[in-house]
Amino acid sequence: MNRGAVANAAGYLGTRLGQALIALWGVTTAVFFALRLSGDPAQLLAPQGATQEDIARLREQLGLDVSVWQQYTEFLKGLLHGDLGFSYVRHEPALDLITQRMPYTIDLALSALFLSIVFGVGAGMVMALNRGRWPERVLMPVVLVGQAMPAFWTGILLVLVFSVTFHVLPSTGYSGITSLILPAVTLASLSAATIARITRGAVLEQLGRDYVRTARAKGAGTARLVVRHLARNVSVPILTVLALEVANLLGGSVVTELIFAWPGLGQLTVQSVDGRDFPVVQAVVILAALVYILVNLVTDIVYAFIDPRISTLGKAAGT
């Protein structure tokens, strides 16, 4: 790798990191001011029968007695020092509350992502390689139903079947690995269906290429064709949709956690929004934005190595 290639790669990474920081600042600013437009937390948190003096005193305790711009400045200063604020309702640091709930959401999101990839990529490959035959006729309706049904409806049906009717799986709360099954399947259903359709389309496009016909003429079996020839060429569109589905998993986890009373960040977010607990809502949104931005940043870098035409980073890696 020569110096020019290294400089180009560093420039590409620097540009993407800069864009990521700008996006994170934009999300942070937007959620800060949007929450201030939702109402006065002091009015909601004040006990019944509180006087205006009591409310004013509470507003001062919460740091809401100064201008919005002063609040924003203090918020950014705290953020730069790793301070995400102090919960108005629970009287704990927002970061501590997130740390307590995060393992549950991580378990749910990773399980759903695993199911989405396994079923989505697997079903998409099977449908494409068996176009017009019975495997596609069986799987395609399942995929279409998965895309059409919203998460709350899928979750309710799963609870009715596996918890209410057959009593084989718990419906709410966290009581071990079995309680993870229904929420994970619910959260994964839409993403898996989307990935399956994208995978099917990408594979069908590649199957019409000359290199595939050549490989088949040389006697390449299905497994060799997929691993040696198709995998790399269909990976870019699949990675694209996977990066987008991360956002859907983050958003969908809120609904899923409410349905199954899952003690994760989604449930914490809804409770905090209802209570106008600004610091906690801000902290959760910032965390979600950071995860999404990092996933997209990593995806862009992986693109560059898979397909060197995408950026100078890939060319530098291949030098």
Score class of each variant (00 low, 15 high):
Val68Ala: 15
Gln52Pro: 02
Val142Ile: 15
Leu64Gly: 09
Leu21His: 02
Gly122Thr: 14
Asp54Ser: 08
Leu58Arg: 05
Asp96Val: 10
Arg3Ala: 13
Gly39His: 05
Thr51Ile: 02
Pro141Asn: 11
Gly14Ile: 06
Leu108Lys: 02
Leu17Asp: 05
Ile22Glu: 07
Ala109Thr: 07
Ala112Arg: 01
Arg101Ala: 15
Ser111Met: 04
Glu74Met: 10
Phe119His: 03
Ala5Leu: 12
Trp25Glu: 08
Glu92Val: 10
Leu115Arg: 00
Ala94Asn: 07
Arg101Val: 04
Ala7Cys: 00
Gln100Ser: 11
Met140Tyr: 12
Gly18Gln: 11
Leu21Met: 13
Glu60Met: 05
Ser67Gln: 08
Val118Phe: 13
Val27Asn: 06
Phe32Arg: 06
Asp65Val: 09
Glu136Gln: 14
Leu84Asn: 06
Val118Gln: 07
Ala9Tyr: 09
Tyr104Asp: 07
Gln19Asn: 14
Ala46Glu: 03
Met125Ile: 15
Leu95Phe: 11
Leu76Cys: 06
Gly11His: 02
Arg101Met: 01
Thr15Asp: 01
Asp107Gln: 15
Gln70Gly: 04
Arg137Pro: 06
Tyr12Ser: 11
Asp65Trp: 09
Thr105Asp: 05
Glu60Gln: 14
Pro103Trp: 07
Leu24Gly: 06
Met125Glu: 00
Val89Ala: 10
Ile55Lys: 08
Asp83His: 05
Gly85Ala: 07
Asp107Phe: 00
Gly49Met: 05
Leu115Val: 09
Asn8His: 12
Asp96His: 07
Gly26Asn: 02
Gly124Asp: 08
Leu84Cys: 03
Ser111Arg: 01
Leu24Met: 13
Leu95Gln: 10
Gly18Glu: 09
Leu139Met: 09
Arg59Gly: 08
Ile117Leu: 13
Phe119Pro: 00
Thr105His: 05
Gly120Cys: 10
Arg36Gln: 12
Leu95Glu: 04
Leu24Ser: 09
Ala42Lys: 03
Thr73Lys: 14
Gly122Pro: 00
Asn8Tyr: 08
Gly132Asn: 09
Glu60Ala: 15
Leu129Phe: 10
Ala112Glu: 07
Leu37Gly: 00
Asp40Ser: 11
Arg131Cys: 08
Met127Phe: 08
Ala42Gln: 04
Ala94Asp: 06
Gln100Phe: 01
Ala5Lys: 13
Ile117Glu: 01
Val121Asn: 06
Gln70Thr: 14
Ala9Asn: 08
Val118His: 04
Thr29Arg: 02
Asn8Trp: 04
Gly14Pro: 13
Ala112Lys: 01
Gln70Lys: 12
Glu136Thr: 10
Ser38Cys: 07
Gly120Val: 08
Asn8Gln: 14
Trp69Phe: 14
Leu24Ile: 14
Ser116Val: 06
Glu92Lys: 14
Leu13Met: 13
Ala23Thr: 15
Glu92Ser: 12
Thr15Ala: 11
Glu136Pro: 07
Asn130Glu: 08
Ala30Pro: 04
Leu113Ile: 07
Gln43His: 03
Ala5His: 12
Gly122Ser: 15
Asp54Val: 09
Ala20Phe: 01
Met127Ile: 09
Asn8Pro: 00
Gln70Phe: 04
Val118Ser: 05
Ala42Ile: 01
Tyr12Phe: 14
Arg133Trp: 07
Ala9Glu: 10
Leu21Tyr: 04
Gln19Lys: 03
